[in-house]
Deep mutational scan, measured.
Amino acid sequence: KKIKIKIKVYNPETKEVLELEIEVSEEEAEELAKKLAEELEKKGYKIEEVEI
């Protein structure tokens, strides 16, 4: 079964909002969402919402 992940991120420095969407297997979904959120935060983005 495929799971659709939508991530909306906001960069306070540039006032930019990015929306990302990807489909992955159920097993990958939670781990991938967690890794993406961590990487984006390292780059200065503030995570507003992660929906699985």
Rank of each mutant, 00 (worst) to 15 (best):
A29E: 03
E28G: 10
T14G: 05
Y10R: 10
E38V: 12
E31K: 12
L32A: 10
E30S: 12
V17P: 02
Y10C: 13
K6D: 01
I5T: 00
N11S: 15
K2W: 15
L40W: 15
E27F: 10
K15P: 02
K34E: 06
L20Q: 02
K42P: 00
E31P: 07
E13G: 09
K15E: 06
E31T: 13
E31M: 09
V24I: 04
L40M: 07
L18R: 02
E38A: 09
P12W: 14
E39A: 13
E41F: 06
E51R: 08
K1M: 08
K4P: 01
V9Q: 01
V50I: 08
P12A: 09
E28S: 13
E16C: 11
I47K: 01
I7N: 00
V50C: 14
E38K: 05
V24Q: 02
L36D: 00
V24P: 02
T14V: 05
E26V: 03
V50F: 05
S25C: 15
K1Y: 09
E28H: 12
P12K: 07
K2N: 14
S25L: 09
E51G: 06
Y10S: 14
S25A: 12
A37E: 02
K6M: 05
L32K: 15
G44T: 00
I47S: 00
K35H: 10
E30K: 09
A29I: 02
K46I: 13
K15D: 09
E16I: 09
E30Y: 10
K6Q: 05
I3T: 15
G44H: 01
E48S: 06
G44K: 00
K35M: 07
K42T: 04
A37W: 09
E38T: 05
E41A: 09
E38P: 00
E21W: 13
V50Q: 02
A37H: 04
E51K: 06
L32M: 11
L18D: 06
A33G: 11
E28W: 06
E13N: 10
I52N: 02
E51C: 15
T14R: 07
K8N: 03
K46H: 09
K42M: 11
E23G: 06
I3C: 15
N11T: 07
P12H: 06
K35C: 15
K35D: 05
I52G: 02
L32S: 11
K43T: 06
A33Q: 06
E49I: 12
E51P: 01
L20P: 00
E21P: 00
I3K: 06
E27D: 12
V24S: 13
P12G: 11
A29Q: 04
E19F: 12
T14E: 03
E27I: 11
I7F: 11
A33L: 04
E38W: 11
L40D: 00
E49N: 08
E48R: 05
I7P: 00
K46Q: 09
A37R: 06
N11G: 02
I52T: 03
S25F: 10
E16Y: 08
Y45W: 03
E39R: 03
L40R: 00
G44E: 02
N11Y: 05
E28T: 09
E27Q: 08
K35N: 05
Y45A: 00
V24H: 03
A37S: 13
K35S: 07
K46M: 10
E38N: 11
S25M: 11
Y45F: 09
E21M: 14
V50W: 06
L18V: 04
I3M: 15
K4S: 11
L32D: 04
E16H: 09
E28I: 10
K1Q: 14
N11F: 06
T14N: 07
I5R: 00
E41W: 04
P12Y: 12
L40E: 01
K43C: 14
K8G: 03
L18Q: 03
I7S: 00
E41P: 02
E19C: 14
I47E: 00
I3Q: 07
K42I: 06
E41S: 13
L40T: 01
I7R: 00
V24N: 02
E31C: 13
L40G: 01
I47Y: 01
I52W: 06
G44Y: 00
L32C: 14
A29M: 03
K34P: 02
K42A: 03
E28K: 15
N11R: 03
L20W: 10
E49R: 09
V17M: 11
K2P: 10
K2A: 05
E48Y: 11
V50E: 01
K2I: 12
L32E: 10
I52L: 09
E31L: 11
E26K: 08
E28D: 12
A33T: 08
K15I: 08
T14I: 04
V17W: 08
K1G: 12
A37P: 03
V17N: 06
E48T: 13
E28M: 11
E23H: 12
E27H: 14
L18F: 14
A29N: 02
L18G: 06
A37C: 09
A29W: 02
E31A: 10
G44Q: 00
I5P: 00
K46A: 08
V50H: 02
E28Y: 15
L32Y: 09
E23K: 05
K15R: 11
E23L: 10
A37Y: 02
E23Y: 15
E19T: 09
Y10E: 03
E41L: 07
L32H: 07
E16R: 10
P12C: 15
G44D: 01
E13K: 09
Y45G: 01
K42H: 04
Y45H: 03
E26C: 11
L40K: 00
E26F: 09
E41C: 11
E49G: 07
K35A: 06
K4F: 11
K1P: 08
K42C: 14
E49Q: 10
E48C: 15
I52E: 02
K8P: 00
K15N: 13
V17T: 05
K2T: 14
E23S: 08
E19V: 10
E48N: 08
K6S: 07
I5H: 00
K34V: 04
Y10H: 14
I5C: 02
E16A: 14
K8Y: 04
K4W: 11
I52P: 02
K35G: 07
A29T: 02
I22P: 00
A29C: 12
L36C: 06
I47M: 02
E30R: 06
S25N: 14
V24M: 01
K35R: 14
K42Q: 10
E23I: 05
E21V: 14
E26P: 15
E38R: 08
E48Q: 04
A37D: 01
K2R: 13
N11E: 03
I3Y: 15
E28P: 03
K42R: 12
K43P: 01
E13V: 06
K4Q: 07
L40N: 02
I7E: 00
E13L: 07
I5K: 00
N11Q: 08
N11I: 08
E38C: 12
V9C: 05
K46C: 15
E49V: 08
L40I: 03
K34L: 04
L40Y: 12
E13Y: 14
E48D: 04
E49L: 15
I5D: 00
L32R: 12
K4Y: 14
K6C: 11
I22V: 14
V24Y: 04
K34F: 01
E23V: 12
K1S: 11
E21D: 04
L40F: 07
N11C: 15
K46D: 11
V9M: 14
I47C: 03
E48F: 09
I47N: 01
V24A: 07
K46E: 08
E48M: 14
K4E: 03
